[in-house]
Amino acid sequence: MIDAATITIAIASGKGGTGKTTLSTNMAAFIAEREAVVLADLDVEEPNSGLFFRAEPVHQEVNYKAIPQWDESKCTLCGICTKACNYHAVIRLGPSIVVFPELCHSCYACSELCPEAALPMVQKKTGILSEFRTGNLHFIESRLDIGEEQAVPAIAKTKKYAAEKHPKVRLTLYDSPPGTSCPVIEAVRDADLVILVTEPTPFGLHDLKLAVETVKVFGIPFGVVINRYGTGNKEVDEYCHQEQIPVLARIPDSRRIAELYSAGKLIYREIPEIREILEEILNKAITITKGGRK
């Protein structure tokens, strides 16, 4: 069915709550019924794809970042470090230099510019990466510790782990964080295809346009899935038609789907129509990725 070497599909959306996680989890479980698939939850601030599977944990490791650690015995309180830090993560409080790990971007400037080598870089835990397995489905997530703001390194690490651990699995899905800021860019930048999930409302259209602009910057092929179809209006359809953006599928609006989601259930197992839709998305997605980057 899938004949390309390996394909990575990022599932993204301009705003939260459009059904990104619903699509990622259902697609992954659906594909896993016939072949191996990797699902990586890259919404590291709030990963909740895992709520939809009963999977066995197979691996866990700590995610780290480098931060400076003050060595009082070497420090002369010259203040170079506090001026070198653009993020105010290293400040001087009276006779002490205090480091705020969550604010640190790991740029190394304070550490390497310190004339006394009094701020060596050390590893600091930022969260946990976990891998789970259920049948053919390999599910990987990273969860940032509360207060930790550096999502991008955790996303990069999770992608790297997925690729290195499962080089032979042909299909990898990314559940991306919402929005158009740095974390999203890190999540989609090296995907073969981006699926943008939206709703047929003015909100959906507005956020879709922003997401399309973002994806176009990287020249990644993309398609749209319109969720909750039947409610709202036709503007998203018209926009996709005008811009020649392929609409991969339209998932109908239904209270039943909302109920299944609220209970953490996979919808395609309860609603047969969704199976066909997932099959359609997958086939179209694979056809598009054959075209490659523009």
Partner: peptide
């Protein structure tokens, strides 16, 4: 520009 974090380290060295 999309990768620059604005730490300013490069300008300092």
């Amino acid at each position: 520009p999309l990768r620059c974090e604005g730490c300013g380290y490069c300008s300092r060295v």
